[in-house]
Amino acid sequence: MKNLFKGAALAAVMFLGTQYVSAQQKVGHINADEVFQATPEFKAAEEQLKTLQESKGKEYQGMVEEYQKKLAEAQEKARTRSEANKATVDVELEAMGQELQNIEQRIQENQRIAQEEVGKKQQDLLAPIQQKVMNAINAVAKEKGYAYILDVSNGSVIYFDGGEDVSADVKAKLGIK
Rank of each mutant, 00 (worst) to 15 (best):
K2R: 13
D165K: 03
K2F: 13
R106M: 06
G97W: 01
K121H: 04
V170N: 01
H29Y: 15
I30R: 00
L52G: 02
Q68A: 12
D169E: 08
E99M: 03
K43D: 10
V27H: 03
K70R: 13
N85M: 10
K177A: 08
K2S: 12
G7Q: 13
I137C: 05
E116W: 07
N31Q: 09
R112Q: 14
A72F: 08
A44F: 01
Y67N: 05
E66M: 10
I137F: 04
V166C: 00
Q61M: 09
V152C: 06
D169G: 02
V152G: 07
A44R: 09
R112K: 11
M63A: 10
K177Q: 10
A84D: 12
G7D: 12
G7C: 09
K173V: 04
E83T: 06
N154W: 01
N102V: 02
G28V: 02
L4V: 14
K173S: 00
K58F: 03
K77T: 15
L10K: 13
F160W: 11
Q19C: 08
Y159P: 09
I149H: 01
Q105A: 06
A147E: 04
Q75I: 09
D161R: 14
I107D: 00
K173D: 04
K171M: 06
T88V: 14
A12K: 10
A12I: 14
K171E: 03
D33V: 09
V152Y: 05
E76L: 13
M134N: 14
L49A: 06
K120W: 09
A172E: 09
E54W: 06
Q68T: 10
E59V: 05
T18D: 07
A87F: 11
Q75F: 10
K77V: 06
A12L: 15
A11V: 14
I158Q: 13
I113M: 07
T51C: 02
E94I: 02
V35I: 04
V166W: 00
P40R: 11
A72G: 11
E59S: 11
V91G: 05
K58Y: 06
I113T: 13
K69C: 07
G17T: 10
L16I: 15
Y60C: 02
L4G: 13
E41C: 00
Y159V: 12
F5L: 15
K142S: 14
V35L: 05
N154A: 06
E47H: 09
N3H: 13
Q111R: 09
K6F: 13
L125A: 00
A141T: 12
V166Y: 01
D165E: 03
E92L: 09
Y60F: 11
R81A: 05
K177S: 09
E83V: 10
N154G: 11
K56F: 08
R106S: 07
P128Q: 05
A44S: 11
V140C: 06
E94F: 03
Y20Q: 12
K132H: 07
A87S: 14
S82W: 01
A9R: 12
M96K: 08
V166E: 01
A11S: 15
L71K: 15
A139H: 12
N138E: 15
D124C: 06
E59T: 08
I30T: 02
K77Y: 09
L4E: 13
A95W: 02
Q108E: 05
V166I: 07
Q130S: 13
K142M: 11
K86R: 14
A11Q: 11
P128T: 07
V157I: 15
